[in-house]
């Protein structure tokens, strides 16, 4: 695999799929929309995009994605959840509707900043991305927040309300939408996780 462009799947049940595909291409990788569990075969990384978490959670159950996604995560394949994707990946979800996949060791609260009229843009410092002292123009839409993180979880960005980006091993999560900006640094960071995981795998072989 080394040397070839990695393939990144974007879970395409509903939501901002096209925007992630554009960002993946801009980072020099190949993006594919995944509508069926069989579409996960051969992906080197997976993005669960923003959408409506209640809806996406139901469709994941309905199309039997649950086990396939858990296996993918357990195999160490990097996964990145943005906004609704964060809720789908979180270990614990406050309020109505419980956790869906329970992959990342974080506790999230839905709509933590309020309804749509309270949605906002804010410059945040994201640790670990390229040129990290330059703020990232983050877009928060009916966004969740991470209220608690487990011991091994790296906090990458935070606002007064709580954590808005975190990494737990191969699970990357953000409460905001890096795909709605022209700034590829967050996707570049995820691609770096993917490339590292590919080369670790090659070493094992």
């Amino acid at each position: 695999m080394a040397g070839n462009e990695p393939t990144i799947g974007v879970l395409a049940l509903q939501g901002a799929v096209a925007e992630h595909l554009v960002m993946i291409e801009a980072c020099g990788a190949r993006g594919v929309g995944v509508k069926r569990p069989s579409g996960l075969d051969g992906v080197n990384g997976l993005i669960i995009p923003g959408g409506e978490s209640t809806t996406v959670g139901k469709l994941i159950d309905e199309y039997g994605f649950g086990n396939a996604l858990l296996e993918l995560g357990a195999a160490g394949v990097p996964m990145f959840g943005t906004c609704a994707g964060l809720i789908i990946m979180a270990g614990r979800v406050e309020g109505r509707h419980g956790p869906v996949l329970g992959l990342a060791d974080v506790t999230v609260r839905r709509n933590a900043f309020g309804r749509q009229v309270d949605s906002f843009e804010e410059d945040v410092i994201v640790r670990g991305i390229e040129d990290e002292s330059r703020p990232f123009g983050a877009v928060f839409i009916r966004a969740p927040v991470i209220e608690e993180v487990g011991a091994g979880v790296e906090v990458m960005a935070r606002l007064e309300k709580g954590v808005v980006m975190a990494r737990d091993g191969n699970y990357l999560t953000s409460a905001f939408h890096p795909e709605l900006t022209g700034d590829t640094r967050v996707h570049d960071y995820f691609l770096r996780m993917v490339r590292e995981s590919i080369s670790e795998r090659d070493m094992e072989v």
């Binding site: 959408g51 409506e52 809806t55 906004c83 949605s119």
Partner: peptide
Amino acid sequence: MEKATDTVKRGLAEMLKGGV
């Protein structure tokens, strides 16, 4: 913090894509 920008307003609709 900037609220009610075009990006934020149009962004919610982006999140509804592919849905009913």
